[in-house]
Design a protein around this nucleic acid. Structure first.
Lengths: 134, 134
DNA sequence: TGAATACCCTACCAAACCAATAGGGTATGA
DNA sequence: TCATACCCTATTGGTTTGGTAGGGTATTCA
């Protein structure tokens, strides 16, 4: 399951996609419109900024906005930033790989199954983008 | 990610598949062979028994064994018992459905994306069985 | 029949994580 | 220079995870 944090992130990003091209959006505005706890949202947006998804402007007239065109940010990327691994097992993860202590990856049934699941999942999440959120 | 509990469950089930047709297997034997904490394993097997995956026999010569042929128990079923929902959002879950408070499922981009992921995932996990573990 | 066997049940615990809050600090621009 | 609005650190309550402890109960076989 995606965490609440990730769900908030996508709701906020959807708002920013809707307001793409109309300048920075206030955290407070997003929080109010999308009913997200303000301070929690603040930390989420900051994290997305640090990871190159968002850009911000301080001071009067400031706010958050998308760094790239909505079609250039993949859903998978956002999930990895906010929630971490997408795979069901560490030993089949591409970005968070850890080897199994107790199974031989060369012939482990579970490993093979979870690898198929990963491929099927990424085939969707690495094609769909923020543009698809609205 | 699958919890450690689920990973233990699959390791234990794999052992039981390997010993299908050779009578009950001791918890202690599984624990030792698969390096799983004994008491933790005990609770996992009990839960699988209560959910119709395993059968047990008490007393001398007793132990655990698969209730059905390995090809008749689906990976998805085991995950749902041990870890709960497979879907990434409650609003697209088949067995653990909860409606979204903040999105309209009829036209919510995230909803659609996660539904595709669910379908792709279940297409694998509801076809593969315990037999595929070995 | 009784004792050893082996599953069954309840309770508890520490560590980690999740969701959220608090309270300022710092850069910006009018 | 001051209000604005993002930036940063710390803390907190609650839940989940992973695991331990200890005894209860049913079964089998000598």
């Amino acid at each position: 399951m995606l965490s609440k944090k990730a769900q908030y992130a996508f709701r906020a990003l959807a708002h920013l996609v809707e307001h793409y091209d109309s300048g920075p959006v206030l955290i407070a505005e997003i929080a109010k419109k999308k009913r997200i706890p303000l301070k929690f949202l603040e930390s989420i947006l900051l994290e997305l900024k640090k990871n190159n998804i968002l850009e911000s402007k301080k001071g009067k007239g400031g706010g958050y906005f998308l760094k790239k065109d909505p079609s250039q940010t993949y859903i998978a990327t956002v999930i990895r930033i906010v929630d971490g691994p997408i795979s069901l097992l560490p030993c089949v993860s591409l970005y968070f790989y850890q080897r199994c202590k107790n199974c031989n990856e060369k012939h482990c049934g579970l490993h093979d199954i979870m690898k198929s699941v990963r491929d099927a999942t990424l085939n969707i999440l690495e094609k769909r983008t923020l543009k698809d959120l609205i």
